[in-house]
């Protein structure tokens, strides 16, 4: 039985990674999860300099999901390279570094700093709804998506994954733009912008007023967007959004994702990512699937 997948020339031992921002750089979760069991670890977004992030409260629970407005707090690329990459190098898993910035120059600075680091892939977050400049602004205009993709591709020695925002009318337009800019892979979806109001205090629950919604409630939206995107581009897709179980992950693969990413579910049960690897194996056994790649896009009309 083959569980390994190839994403833009990088072979993962299985199709399961963890979603950026929900898993730090793995150190905290490694007390619970054997990181060697994961196809890849995707780190929290990192910028050229440290970012303090947003005021608190930064998270709120909503029915079947959550909102977050962490605001991409991160220690900056220098400390990250020294501490976080060397931590992850102890494990037999692929390392995907998620990159954020306020401007093209800032993204490029991080990408340049990472080009000779021992990491496997970079994921460019052009879709964070929680920062005022940059982030989502790059991710909602196809021209900007293509331009920034082309720009980071100039410097990156590792394959580039462009992370797309669901906060657009037509996700395929953004996907095609990233592909045109030279993206090696896509990941989707980032969070969907939401809001929660405390009716007793008549105040916004999040200090940032709005936050990105994640968790099981957004899963059907993510499956739909992965399916549409898979029809529109030829590069591999890492599917994410509300994956809680192996069944959710398999749905994503059938919709056209080559790999999946587990985010909010880590908060519900730190063991989720490992359990999903086991559950996928069990599904393949049950249906006599020899190669995981047979499942990719295998939904039929």
């Amino acid at each position: 039985m083959n569980l390994s997948v190839n994403i833009a020339g990088v072979t993962w031992k299985n199709p399961v990674t963890v979603a950026s921002g929900t898993f730090g750089s793995g150190a905290e979760y490694s007390e619970f999860v054997d990181l060697n069991r994961l196809g890849a670890v995707t780190t929290k977004g990192v910028a050229n300099v440290p970012w303090p992030g947003n005021p608190t409260p930064r998270v709120a629970e909503v029915y079947g999901g959550m909102l977050n407005a962490v605001g991409l707090q991160n220690p900056g690329i220098e400390l990250f390279c020294k501490r976080d990459i060397s931590f992850l190098k102890q494990y037999d898993t692929k390392i995907i570094v998620n990159v954020c910035g306020h401007s093209t120059e800032e993204y490029v600075e991080v990408v340049k700093r990472l080009q000779d680091e021992p990491i496997d892939m970079m994921e460019i977050n052009i879709s964070c709804p929680n920062v005022k400049e940059g982030g989502i602004a790059f991710g909602t205009d196809p021209k900007a998506v293509e331009a920034i993709t082309a720009e980071v591709k100039k410097y990156a020695k590792q394959p580039i994954i462009m992370k797309l925002s669901p906060n657009v009318t037509d996700i395929t337009e953004m996907a095609r733009a990233a592909e045109a800019g030279g993206a090696d892979a896509l990941s989707l979806i980032n969070t969907i912008t939401g809001m929660k109001i405390d009716i007793d205090r008549r105040k916004f629950v999040l200090a940032n007023k709005t936050g990105g919604m994640s968790g099981p409630a957004i899963h059907p939206v993510a499956v739909r967007m992965v399916y549409q995107t898979a029809q529109a581009v030829h590069i591999p897709i890492i599917g994410m959004g509300g994956i809680m179980t192996a069944a959710d992950a398999i749905e994503m693969l059938l919709a056209g994702a080559t790999a999946v990413s587990v985010g909010t579910a880590n908060f519900v049960d730190p063991h989720t990512s490992e359990k999903i690897v086991e559950g996928i194996e069990a599904y393949m056994m049950k249906y006599g699937v020899e190669d995981i790649n047979e499942l990719v896009g295998a939904v039929h009309a």
Partner: peptide, 25 residues
């Protein structure tokens, strides 16, 4: 307000006088 409870998600921060060794802010 917390999400992970173990230090991974950066939901639950408070301002500190000195630069924190982990967060670098």
């Amino acid at each position: 307000r917390m999400a992970c409870g173990i230090g991974a998600c950066l939901a639950c921060v408070c301002g500190s006088k000195d630069k924190d060794e982990h967060s670098n802010v």
